[in-house]
């Protein structure tokens, strides 16, 4: 794992990617810092982070797009997978490298609250909370990006898909709050999930008949529920989607609330996506 971590770190800083990432992140943070703190004479640094969050749309793909896709493309995964290193070790090494570059960029921006503290009083707890939350949030996006990168051998596909995924994660709350009470929406959501289950089954068994049967059974159950007990559908889509509302969790930190539940949530979110990544690589070997 450490060999992979070291190589990835070297790659970030021997190519442009590491510098571009850090420069871009610090620049954007600096712009918001000037606008929201210096020019508007406000000591509330956590607003800066809340504004920078949108930048993850670009930052996450930059960090993760080539991590695993490039290995598949250059066939260097043959070296990694035939070495005495576990797949988990490979994935963790890559994840920690991306995470470390993010941490470096984040530490550089610490200079801004320090500047603020020289000229006035700052809400230390809120700022530290923001940093912890922001770091965890960033790692969630990195884990998602890494997972996407493991599924393709094309960097561009990986980057665009990561962009879309981060966008959806950021928008979940907005979508949920406006549509969760709607019965038709929930039903449609349930049908899509049923379809996905059938497709997943088809992908694994390549048996059209059984997959079709499964979908028909699922549709029948949904129909019965819809006419007999429509109450089940209320909030169904909303509750499911809420599981991915990373932004809501982050807002707790920004308010200076150090919520252990949110920390656990973030860490489990990261672990789940890293586990998915390991599964994708393992599955390719069995295919």
């Amino acid at each position: 794992m450490s060999a992979i971590f070291k190589r990835e770190m070297k790659m970030y800083f021997s190519s442009m990617i590491g510098y571009v990432f850090i420069a871009f992140f610090v620049l954007v943070t600096a712009i918001y810092f000037s606008l929201l703190n210096i020019l508007s004479l406000s000591p509330q640094f956590e607003y800066v982070f809340s504004s920078v969050i949108m930048m993850f749309l670009i930052l996450a793909p930059i960090l993760t797009m080539r991590l695993l896709s490039e290995e598949t493309k250059q066939k260097t995964d043959q070296l990694l997978l035939t070495s005495p290193v576990s797949v988990t070790g490979i994935v963790l090494g890559k994840f920690f490298a991306a995470s470390a570059v993010f941490l470096i960029a984040l530490l550089i921006t610490a200079i801004f609250p320090i500047i603020l503290s020289v000229y006035g009083t700052i809400a230390t707890a809120q700022i530290i909370g923001s940093y912890v939350g922001f770091f965890l949030l960033g790692n969630c996006f990195i884990a998602v990006g890494l997972w996407i990168s493991s599924m393709t051998d094309n960097q561009i596909v990986s980057a665009v898909a990561t962009f879309v995924a981060v966008f959806l994660l950021l928008m979940v709350e907005t979508i949920v709050s406006s549509a969760s009470g709607n019965l038709t929406f929930s039903l449609m959501f349930a049908v899509v999930v049923a379809l996905l289950i059938a497709l997943y089954f088809y992908n694994n068994t390549k048996d059209k008949g059984i997959s079709a049967c499964i979908f028909v059974v699922e549709a029948a159950i949904l129909a019965v529920l819809y006419f007999k007990k429509p109450g089940v559908f209320y909030g169904l889509a909303g509750n499911f989607a809420y599981m991915f509302a990373v932004l809501t969790r982050y807002n707790n930190f920004a308010m200076g609330i150090f919520d252990i539940g949110s920390v656990v949530y973030f860490i489990s979110f990261i672990c789940v996506f890293l586990y998915f990544t390991v599964r994708v690589i393992e599955k390719r070997r069995w295919a």
């Binding site: 190589r7 021997s14 250059q74 066939k75 260097t76 070296l79 035939t82 070495s83 005495p84």
Partner: peptide, 16 residues
């Protein structure tokens, strides 16, 4: 795997 050295069809080298 410790006991095996493997040279695949396309050498798995990192260009950079």
């Amino acid at each position: 795997k410790k006991r095996i050295g493997y040279l695949p069809e396309i050498p798995p080298v990192y260009m950079d």
